[in-house]
């Protein structure tokens, strides 16, 4: 009986191991797969991320007439596996080492960018 006593007494007389989040925030680990960002200027709308995404939360569409492309990600369906980041030919996708903040509403990440010249677009799939 009472075998735990030394441990709990030690706890009592040493500093608590609690991390005082959110008052003190730890330095994030650089490898942490956090919030997904798309640098829309670098994006070539190649749909690789859309195809590879295991959760199929990315939709890429192109509007040739307007010369714009739309990159839509459902952050609520994203499973933070970073496959899209790995396959992105232009490295326009990146993951911040911080988690995405909670929100009260359901919102899509929708980014509209200019379509690049076709030459570059063709080059991308070849890289594979």
């Amino acid at each position: 009986m009472l075998k735990m006593t030394p441990t709990v007494l030690k706890n009592l007389f040493s500093k608590s191991s609690t991390r005082m989040y959110p008052f003190e925030v730890r330095e994030p680990f650089p490898l942490y797969r956090g919030e997904l960002f798309n640098d829309i200027d670098k994006c070539i709308f190649c749909k690789k991320c859309e195809i590879k995404c295991p959760s199929q939360c990315i939709t890429v569409s192109k509007d040739k007439e307007a010369g714009t492309g739309t990159w839509i990600c459902d952050p609520f369906a994203c499973v933070y596996c970073s496959i899209c980041v790995d396959v992105c030919p232009t490295k326009s996708l990146s993951m911040a080492p911080n988690h995405r903040k909670p929100s009260a509403t359901r919102d899509m990440i929708e980014q509209v960018g200019k379509l690049k010249v076709p030459k570059k677009k063709k080059a991308a799939p070849k890289k594979d």
Partner: peptide, 28 residues
């Protein structure tokens, strides 16, 4: 999702959500 059944006040994304994120959610 949960909001198909009951109204949800705060959504905490992540797969899985980090404890920090959950704390943020509770605070929110």
């Amino acid at each position: 999702g949960i909001d198909k059944v009951i109204p949800v006040d705060i959504y905490v994304p992540g797969c899985p959500a980090k404890p920090e994120a959950i704390i943020d959610g509770v605070v929110a």
